[in-house]
Amino acid sequence: MATTSSSGFARTSGASGTGTVLGAELTVEGEISGNEPLQVEGTVKGRIAVTDTVTIGAGAVVEADLEVREAKVAGALTGNVSASERVEVGTEGRLIGDVRSPRLLIAEGASFKGHVDMDV
């Protein structure tokens, strides 16, 4: 098992290996809610409200508003993001939308268009 997932982010050690994974060939239209880590490698349209970490994988296409604890964007995300802890846009990440989060990390190479509110 590689230490780096296909999402482009290293897996947090100690995190349960399973969690929810929506694969590259899966499309969800609607609302996803819950309280455990979610990894999207496919397509999601709608809304994601998860009180944990949501990872948008490198090949993922997400058109949704996010209400999460932490968002890691390695793929393409169009929508507003509200995170209670942090938002991270990876080197290959593409984010179009407004971000509301106490911490925001934008890696070199990432593309981002939108407003930022760090709520200070």
Partner: peptide
Amino acid sequence: GPGIRINGR
């Protein structure tokens, strides 16, 4: 996972 709910298609 058990903590996730999906409403839609």
